[in-house]
Amino acid sequence: MIPELKILRPEKLIDLLDLIAPADGATRILAGGTDIIPGFHINSKRFSSIRKLVETVKIPEMHEIKEEDDSVIIGSSVTFSELINSELINTYFPLLVKAVSKIGSVQIRNRATIAGNFVNNAPCADSVPPLLVYNAEVEIANKNSTRKVLLNDFLEKPYKTQLKDSECVVRIILKKIDKTFTGDFYKLGRRRGVAISRITLAVILKKENNIIKDIRIASGAVTPIGMRFTELENDLIGKEITPELLVSSSQKLGKNVLDVTGLRWSSVYKVPVIQRTFYNLLENICLD
């Protein structure tokens, strides 16, 4: 059941930060609500202490997408539908568009927000792998100060991030990447619409004369939280792209995932699927 709540809708960021400053454990930011509201309804323990919700909907800077010289700034309460419709995001960060287009349904994407997705930090948060390969930075504010942190460091473990009760994610900063990068995103769910991801992979790659100059690989759902595979990335940089390299790096990725998750009942299915998926992604990207 949904408890008796106090619902506040401040119009300025500073007012929101004042409201969350006491860090009383009973106050939570509401940015969309597609996790919190059904979470209340099914009596999820994660939300049982909440008595006050502070909505972000009226704070203008949390809803903007804007271009700066070398980066694009995304307000933390931008919805997935707004990302999909943004020319800027389509131009510079196509994997993010591809990933969030597959989240939930039109109804969910019209409400759910980007920071809501990664602050909730479910293993299957589909915006996370593309944000990780784009080296997303998160700007966090409290009443007195602002700090920036890489999303990769911000995400700690399933349903847990660095965010303190007195803090709010205000913006996401994505550095524009070199136009010579190509990439792709893959999602495996049990059906197409409203499907919880089982496996997601995001890869971007830059090559010159068939040599890998840079590569970034991130997974979701199949690992406890969305994560980068930096060891494998470093291993691949400088290598010539050959069919053998695609096979051996796919095998390594499968092993890396097993190292993270340990052997599970589903491993026998998931590991070959990850390997094949990664191989197909690499093959498509390298043919570009």
């Binding site: 619902i7 609500g33 919700l53 539908s81 969910i108 019209n110």
Partner: peptide
């Protein structure tokens, strides 16, 4: 429809 956009009314609080 909320401001012309389809939403699930089970995922929106009346106050919102």
């Amino acid at each position: 429809l909320m401001d012309g956009k389809a939403v699930n009314s089970c995922l929106v609080l009346a106050a919102q």
